[in-house]
């Protein structure tokens, strides 16, 4: 068959006969997630990530430095106020690395959440002019932050060497908790991104929200400061489970409180799946409203 396609005319007719058919119709109810379609558009996902990283490192000439400094400065502040002044006990490990270990997933989470929440608005011109699965946008926003995450993690390994912390087998669970922080950022990010399209003040509320959130997360203090019977409720904040798990994986101390961790995992799962469907449900209106 293919060998007969010698002239442009023949090739053209062959192409026309094998054209894909697209049906366009009004939105009907709950849309399927179409994760297969996301896979077909992975080039675009890669490109959005590449664009955001490139632009950021061009705009702020301290681009890389900022990725290093952000958690380090936060670590310094926490060490000063919580470690030295308030004398929060960090157990067997020195307070600075205790805090920094938590700040790595926390900083990633805050940045990824902020980016994904604003992602639909930042990309509004593209959304109103080109078709592609919109899920690509918030997903690329949380993926972009992984570079900073990796850099912060390298510094963390450096600090481990400096403080003479020897990894335990718990380190093998680190990828799981990294994935969980990504899922948490995306889970919340999907909801907020959609709401942000309709309610533009989400953007201004978010910084306050994350500030309060920080205190509801065991970043500056250990989670065993929370009374045992409250920990499962405390775990409803998925970042509590992430930070606890992260600390255990790196420092090898205090394994996560199981009910707390289960609560966190449950919340993330529900939030993420719900968020994906909510996003798909609202997706058709983005181009008209954004």
């Amino acid at each position: 068959m293919v060998s007969k396609l010698n002239t442009p005319g023949q090739r053209y007719m062959y192409r026309i006969r094998n054209l894909p058919l697209t049906l366009i119709h009004p939105p009907k109810g709950l849309a399927p997630l179409e994760l297969g379609k996301l896979w077909r558009y992975r080039d675009l996902l890669y490109l959005f990530v590449w664009r955001d990283i490139k632009v950021r490192y061009k705009q702020t000439f301290v681009g890389t430095a900022w990725a290093l400094l952000q958690p380090l400065i936060a670590c310094l502040v926490l060490t000063l106020f919580f470690g030295k002044l308030a004398r929060i006990s960090s157990g067997e490990v020195p307070y600075p690395i205790f805090a920094y270990t938590a700040l790595v997933p926390w900083t990633y989470f805050v940045n990824a959440l902020t980016h994904s929440s604003n992602s639909l608005i930042f990309n509004s011109t593209i959304i109103t002019r080109v078709y592609f699965p919109r899920l690509i946008i918030p997903i690329s926003a949380v993926a972009t932050g992984l570079l900073d995450f990796a850099i912060a993690l390298l510094i963390l390994f450096g600090l481990m060497v400096f403080y003479g912390i020897i990894p335990t087998p718990a380190l093998l669970t680190l990828p799981f908790f990294m994935l969980m922080s990504l899922a948490t950022a995306l889970g919340f990010g999907l909801w907020l991104a959609v709401l942000n399209v309709e309610y533009r003040d989400i953007k201004f509320i978010l910084p306050f929200l994350t500030q309060i959130w920080l205190f509801a997360t065991p970043v500056a203090y250990p989670s065993n400061l929370v009374p045992e019977k409250w920990r499962i409720i405390y775990g409803l904040n998925p970042m509590a489970g992430v930070v606890d798990g992260f600390r255990w994986a790196i420092l090898g101390t205090n394994p996560p409180h199981i009910p707390l961790l289960i609560a966190s995992i449950t919340v993330v799962t529900i939030l993420l799946i719900g968020g994906l469907f909510f996003f798909r449900y609202k997706e058709d209106t983005f181009a008209d409203v954004v």
């Binding site: 119709h25 009004p26 939105p27």
Partner: peptide, 23 residues
């Protein structure tokens, strides 16, 4: 609508082939 950027409220459309749009 034809480039699938937005959905129609009623009716439908069939497109035979890939669409490129310069909107």
């Amino acid at each position: 609508i034809l480039s699938q950027v937005t959905k129609p409220t009623e009716g439908y459309a069939e497109i035979h082939g890939r669409v490129g749009a310069m909107l």
